[in-house]
């Protein structure tokens, strides 16, 4: 069970919002790059966010580039999961592959600052509002990859003998 504060964002949060291209010179120093996460939307985000917190958003979270740094900088800032109405598919893959859990759910009843509790099996409790929200369960393959902490560990353990 994961528990933390919800940081709420709108629709179409792109990889350029999550980590703008102009900071890519920092990409070999990923800790430094991570300090700029989400600053296009909230310049003080990385100063305020605490380990275990959640990003909650509308539809099409992570649209845009295939650059995996977008998922990595969120994980490095301690984000325990991203919950959105829908995700752009490459971001979705990248997040699962690096071991950052994602949930698809109707996020209208989660507000910025709400305290939420998340069961990756598919249930979200909004403790601040006293309501439960159903999330779409992840496909088995993704649960397995997340359980191993990402695709690298998964492949190391199972090779390609997975289906």
């Amino acid at each position: 069970m994961l528990r933390g504060r919800a940081w709420k964002f709108g629709d179409n949060v792109s990889t350029d919002h999550i980590i703008p291209g102009r900071y890519y010179h920092l990409r070999s120093n990923i800790q430094e790059l991570a300090k700029h996460a989400m600053e296009e939307v909230d310049p003080n985000f990385t100063k305020k966010v605490k380990p275990g917190d959640f990003i909650v958003a509308g539809r099409n979270f992570g649209c845009g580039s295939s650059r995996e740094h977008a998922a990595i900088v969120l994980k490095l800032n301690g984000i325990s999961a991203v919950i959105a109405k829908s995700f752009a598919r490459i971001f979705y893959r990248n997040a699962i592959n690096i071991g950052l859990p994602l949930l698809i759910a109707d996020t209208d009843d989660i507000y910025d600052g709400d305290e939420i509790e998340v069961d990756l099996g598919g249930e979200i409790k909004n403790l601040s509002k006293g309501i439960k929200i159903k999330a779409k369960p992840l496909p088995d393959i993704m649960v397995k990859i997340l359980q191993e902490g990402g695709l690298i560990n998964y492949v190391k353990k199972y090779g390609d003998l997975v289906f």
């Binding site: 295939s66 650059r67 995996e68 998922a71 490459i90 893959r93 990248n94 592959n97 690096i98 990402g150 695709l151 690298i152 492949v155």
Partner: peptide, 9 residues
């Protein structure tokens, strides 16, 4: 398009 971990695989 895929990410870098995908590509590593």
């Amino acid at each position: 398009g895929v990410g870098s971990t995908d590509m590593g695989c």
